[in-house]
């Protein structure tokens, strides 16, 4: 196969293979590109793997993130106010790739900025920048022709969200064109809302395993190392977003600008979370 696969789906597969070898779940961390400003965001991004992030989800800022809670919405608005846009998001990824060849990067966001960029051009630029996969919240399988199919053809992963409303009837459709891993959103709601109980996660994992062999990452509502550890006992990876993004917000000065504590506060939290995840099965 072409080089594309080496850069794209393969990096994700390799990472999960490595996690399996180590007998542990992975930690997936989310930050929004450009939050609170492009430079600080790039600094944080570069430090995430060392702090313990196994996979990175990088939010593409959007004015109207309908499926996100206040924390991630505000992160988007901070980034946009600081002049963030799609080309800068891709250049941040390129900068990260120059120093890290192994940590998968998944871009996460909404369809409109990609649609306006132009799907073909976006996929070309994203692949060249070193992006491994996409999560696009407002593209269900019914709209696969828009972006999912072209993404897979380009050798990148299109990662689907599955939810508590995804029943046995719906799941085959959801896992059909997906690759990389399956993201299980453990509660029906926006990002940052309450978390699911252990029993609910076990039940959902069982349902998902009947339909896919892909690794399963579980997210939504994970705020502490203990919660991350609970999820890591069941799932192949735990995803933390709002808690990290809230930490960025907490670190800002009264004008909403980054301080010299911003990056260290984020990496501090990621270290705690990674500790929880890494020791979960011991």
């Amino acid at each position: 196969m072409s080089d594309a696969i080496i850069g794209g789906q393969d990096r994700i597969a390799k990472r999960f293979a490595k996690l399996k070898e180590e007998g542990r779940a992975g930690l997936v961390t989310f930050i929004t590109a450009g939050d609170p400003d492009p430079e600080t965001s790039f600094e944080i991004l570069k430090q995430l793997p060392e702090a313990g992030a196994d996979i990175i989800e990088l939010g593409m800022p959007f004015t109207d993130p309908m499926a996100d809670g206040p924390a991630i919405q505000e992160a988007s608005l901070r980034a946009l106010a600081a002049g963030m846009h799609m080309r800068k998001t891709l250049s941040i990824v390129r900068g990260f790739r120059d120093q890290d060849h192994d940590t998968p990067i998944i871009l996460m966001g909404y369809y409109n900025p990609i649609y306006i960029y132009g799907v073909a051009e976006f996929l070309e630029d994203a692949r060249n920048a070193g992006v491994d996969g996409l999560i696009v919240v407002d593209l269900p399988p019914e709209e696969d022709a828009e972006l999912c199919i072209p993404t897979v053809e380009k050798g990148l992963s299109f990662i689907r969200l599955t939810t508590p409303t995804s029943d046995d009837k719906r799941l085959p459709k959801l896992v059909q064109n997906t690759s990389g891993f399956v993201y299980y959103v453990s509660v029906a709601g926006v990002t940052g809302a309450g978390s699911a109980s252990n029993d609910q996660i076990v039940e959902a994992m069982g349902r998902l395993r009947r339909h896919t062999d892909l690794p399963i990452a579980v997210g939504f509502g994970i705020k502490t190392a203990a919660q991350a550890a609970d999820v890591a006992k069941q799932a192949d990876a735990a995803v933390v977003g709002s808690a990290i993004v809230s930490k960025i917000a907490e670190s800002l000065d009264e004008n909403g600008k980054a301080t010299d504590k911003t990056a260290s506060m984020v990496t501090g939290l990621v270290r705690e979370l990674a500790n929880g995840v890494r020791n979960a099965r011991k």
């Binding site: 499926a67 407002d138 269900p140 709209e143 689907r160 969200l161 409303t165 995804s166 719906r170 959103v185």
Partner: peptide
């Protein structure tokens, strides 16, 4: 599929699709 020519469609989060 809810299309008026190139317009319309169902661009929603998966949680809402079954609804």
């Amino acid at each position: 599929d809810g299309h008026f020519g190139n317009f319309g469609g169902r661009f929603v989060a998966e949680t809402l699709m079954p609804l």
